[in-house]
Structure formats: C-alpha cells, structure tokens
Design a protein around this nucleic acid. Sequence first.
DNA 1: GGCCAGGTGTAAA
DNA 2: TTTACACATGGC
Length: 217
Amino acid sequence: MCTGTLERAVRRLSRVHGPQHWWPAGSPFEMAVGALLVQHTSWRNAELALENLRGATAFDAVSVGHLSIGNLEALVRPSGTFRVKARRLQALALWWACEFESATAVPTRDLRATLRALHGIGPETADCVLLYAFSRPMFIADAYARRWFYRMGLTKPDTTYAAVQHLGHAQLPDDIGLLQEAHALIVVHNQRHCVARHPNCEDCTLSDTCARVGLAV
DNA sequence: GGCCAGGTGTAAA
DNA sequence: TTTACACATGGC
C-alpha cells in the first residue's frame, strides 16, 4: 500500500459523512466513563446511563468512585451488562481520583499498560480513553476498522487488533484530530451500510455516494 | 420475538 | 493458545 492511501481514504470518509466531533463530554473523566459504558452497546444506551450519572452526581471521579455498587448498578443499568459495568466504573473512578493528575505526564506506552491493568479496560477501551480523554495519538483497531481494512485488501479476516493498529499508525500521521475523526468516521461508515451487518448478503450494495468516490465498506 | 449495538473476563478444551 | 460463553439493556 502506498503511503498516504489510508489517509486519503479517511479524508474521503470525512467528505462523505461529514465531521463527527466525537466524543461528546464535559470532561476527560466523562469521556473515559463514556468509553467504558459504551462497551458492547449502542451510544444511545450509554448516553442514558451517562445522563443518570450526571443527574445523581457532580460527575467527578471522587463522587462517582464513592458511590455504592448498588447505586452504580442502578445508574448504569440502561447501558446493559450493568452489574459488570458498575464494578468496572468504580475501579476506573477510584484510579482516576488518585492518579489522573500524574497520569497526564506518563508516556503513552506506559499509560496504556496502566489502563489495561484496570479491571474491565481492554485494548479498545484503553485506546479510546487515551485518544479522547488524554489526547494521545492512538489508532483504534476496533471491529469496524478491522473490517474496513480487510475490505480494502489491507489485512486478513483474522488479523489481530495489534497488527491492525500497527498498520493504522504506520499509514496515518500522529495527528490527534485526524485519529479522533478516523475512529468516528469508520464506525459511522460501517453503521450506514447494510453490508456491515450482513457480510454475505447478496442484496447488500454500497450506497451510491460511497461507490462514486471509491470507498470500501 | 430476534437481531444488533462504538468489549471484556473467565474457564474449558 | 484458542475458543466458547456470560454479561443485559434498548431500539428497530
């Protein structure tokens, strides 16, 4: 693949779908909580839980971290897997309350390892927190990015998260804004195409717009 | 009623 | 090391 091809593809996504401006939040902590609550659910459901937290607390790490598990479960319930997420959220909030200030000075690689060591923070959530809450240049190699890379002929179906991420970093500049938009655009692009849900469906076709500009889905 | 949505941890093979 | 499964709500 020629250097710049992927960057051009991302810019085409931006022209087709428009600027996304993820992640809507009032603070880095709120962004991190959003990344946790959106795990395996829609943003709509995560937002319902975020609204509950805004209504019940000042939405800072100390007050959220000191809520009981029972209270947290009730508040995050709309985001699904609420018993699991309540515990993950408590762990994140308690860490954040103690470590956020010093974490801002920690090198990205080390900070990622620290986040990954927290309960319930896997590779994708860690990278979302790094990219949106800590403004670190991370390419998020989620399922959508992996499918998109595969459909562009860049990877195989079983290419690992780490390998897709490495390719993303190799082909895209360390531009925070571009990487933030790239993640959002890749998600939106996939969600707007039937083929994303039915990869083997003969009836699924690209939208006229995307086909015209040569975008893979 | 079934499928899908901005994953992760755990346990068995 | 890989695979299977549990976790669970809300919209369509």
